[in-house]
Simulated scan of single mutants.
Amino acid sequence: MKKLKAGIVGCGGIANGKHMPAMKKSGLYELVAFCDIVIERAEDAKEKFGEKDAAVFEDYKELLRLDLDVVYVTTPNRSHAEISIAAMESGKDVMCEKPMAKTYAQALEMLETSKRTGRILQIGYQNRYRADSSYLHKLCEKEELGDIYFAKAHALRRRAVPTWGVFLNEEEQGGGPLIDIGTHALDLTLWMMNNYEVESVIGSVFHKLSDSDNQGNAFGNWDPEQFTVEDSAFGFIKMKNGAVIELESSWALNILDGEEAKTTLCGTKGGADMKGGLRINCIHENLPVVEIPDLSGGGVDFFSGGSKSAGDIEQEHFYDVVVNGREQIVKPEQALVVTRVLEAIYESAKSGKTVYFS
């Protein structure tokens, strides 16, 4: 079995928490190069996950000179495009962490580079590989919910502001909960609907709780002076076929029922939500019925139960795409639309106007 020689650019939280453990566990990759602007992080990653002779760099351009099959871009959002484009132009396939880029223009350049170079570009929307997501998507593909004309994308936390890294830095990230976790919820919702034709977007962002000194935050107190992004954001998206989506996101919001990376769908034949587990609702024999599928394992593509997480399956699927030419589950064209909608919500919030797509 061919193993892919992989380089990691950005050895912070998401690389250590998701990508590198799953790559190592899969046995499909040789982690032979690590890069981080804090060299100690790269060295630590090598010790935990790398081959004995793995190289360590501070400059990603040096890493790209190596003979690698794939490059993982797990840096702050600001540099996703720059590094991904350089990697593809150097002949490597790329796994880039979500969101695709900080701006739509950057994301578009990434897609154009992928097409021009013929290199694979995959975006890290791992929630598509969850058992509930995979099962629900199959139902949607078979049109068992009918025409989905109303949906909600949920990414709500009561008090879980990330206080590490650059999450609170607008220059590095481009925003707060909307671009961080709202992006997952929107990606899931658009994927279920199989609808990427957006007509218009209107949104609002808030900085209502970021200055609070009575925080109750799950990750410890944040520094209000460093909190330069929104603490919550909301958008209303109208599709060209008339369907509508409500997108809600927060790191800090006075709400009891938090829901993250979840979707609610309403169609002409039935509906679905992920509250407390996947629930399908429909009408049978003139009576309202709720179906709760058993997703404990087996019978669902990309999920076999046991110890495999969505992140594990994501790495296996990326390998299959690169080595065996399997069709991508997360297509960069789809991720591009997600980034464009997020940017439109921020733009609408600043201007107070609806943003229309051509």
Rank of each mutant, 00 (worst) to 15 (best):
A131C: 09
L342F: 09
V9P: 01
K152F: 09
E327L: 12
F167G: 01
T228Y: 04
D67V: 04
S79W: 10
N324Y: 13
A54T: 12
V71L: 00
F302R: 14
D320H: 13
P332Y: 00
A344F: 11
M1S: 11
C266K: 14
D257A: 13
Y196A: 06
G258R: 09
N169W: 07
L64H: 03
I202W: 07
A272D: 03
I329K: 15
H137W: 10
I245R: 01
K142P: 00
Q226Y: 04
T103I: 15
K353D: 13
S90E: 12
D36K: 05
R340S: 15
N214S: 10
E333R: 09
L265W: 01
I14W: 03
C35V: 05
E327M: 13
T117N: 02
A272Y: 03
K353M: 12
E260S: 13
S204I: 09
L253P: 00
L278E: 08
I329N: 11
M239G: 00
E62T: 12
D180R: 05
C11Q: 01
R159T: 14
D53A: 15
E97M: 04
T75L: 02
N217F: 08
E333M: 07
D294Q: 03
V56G: 09
A15L: 01
K25V: 00
H19G: 01
A131Q: 11
Q226C: 08
T264Y: 07
E109F: 14
D93Q: 09
P293W: 03
G298Q: 10
E62K: 15
G270T: 01
A55T: 14
N254V: 06
I237D: 02
M1P: 08
A252W: 02
A107W: 12
F34H: 04
C35F: 05
K2F: 06
K102C: 13
F303T: 03
L247D: 01
R158G: 15
E291D: 05
L253W: 12
N127M: 11
G235M: 04
N77M: 09
K308M: 09
G271Q: 07
T189C: 13
I8K: 00
D294P: 01
Y196R: 06
T263Y: 05
A15T: 00
S114V: 01
G12A: 08
T75C: 05
N241D: 15
D67E: 14
P99Y: 08
G216H: 13
R41T: 04
P293G: 06
S200D: 05
A185S: 15
D53N: 15
E285C: 06
V341F: 07
A153W: 03
H284N: 11
G17L: 00
V9W: 00
C140N: 09
L186G: 04
Q122S: 15
T354H: 05
A45F: 04
P293S: 06
T183I: 13
N286Q: 10
S134W: 04
F227W: 06
I179W: 06
D44H: 10
A101G: 15
P288N: 03
G325L: 13
G118R: 07
L28S: 05
P224N: 09
